[in-house]
């Protein structure tokens, strides 16, 4: 199990907030990752260029950070690969159907006190908690 890391969590959260605010100040848009990533499947759209640039930044910056401070980066997978792939499929369907994910609803929408985002965030938190609980009960960890 993982340790409580309040300092790095707060620093990371503040960086995410700064990104979201900078994106609104410059591009005038919600920094919703699911919407931006799904836009990559539509290369003819006039929005394709900036979406690609956003995802490039999203990949390059952590890559460079992990090169510089490998001891600070840990990635581990408690659940089996079958669950991970099924999770990817459901995250893809659900984020598009529900018009957003943790970033668009959980940060951008909640900060605007959007009723839709508050309902969406409470809903995915609840089903996420239930899912992890059920997996632990049936012993589905890797």
């Amino acid at each position: 199990m993982t340790e409580f890391t309040p300092v790095s969590a707060l620093i990371g959260g503040v960086l995410i907030g700064l990104s979201v605010v900078f994106f609104m100040a410059t591009m005038g848009r919600i920094a919703g990752i699911s919407g931006i990533v799904s836009g990559l499947m539509n290369p003819k759209s006039s929005d394709f260029g900036w979406k690609l640039a956003f995802v490039a930044g999203l990949m390059v910056a952590p890559f460079v950070y992990a090169m510089m401070r490998p001891e600070d980066v840990s990635v581990a997978f408690p659940h089996s690969i079958g669950f991970i792939v099924a999770g990817g499929l459901l995250v893809g369907i659900g984020s598009r159907l529900g018009s957003g994910c943790t970033s668009g609803h959980g940060i951008c929408g909640m900060a605007r006190l959007s009723p839709r985002s508050i309902v969406a965030t409470l809903t995915f938190m609840a089903t996420g908690i239930i899912t992890v609980f059920v997996i632990r009960m049936i012993g589905g960890a890797a």
């Binding site: 995250v91 659900g94 984020s95 159907l97 994910c101 970033s103 995915f124 996420g128």
Partner: peptide, 16 residues
């Protein structure tokens, strides 16, 4: 959509 998303989030431990 949010309910489906949350199930996927719990299954994989990843959001987008």
């Amino acid at each position: 959509g949010a309910a489906i998303f949350g199930i996927g989030w719990g299954l994989g431990g990843f959001c987008p």
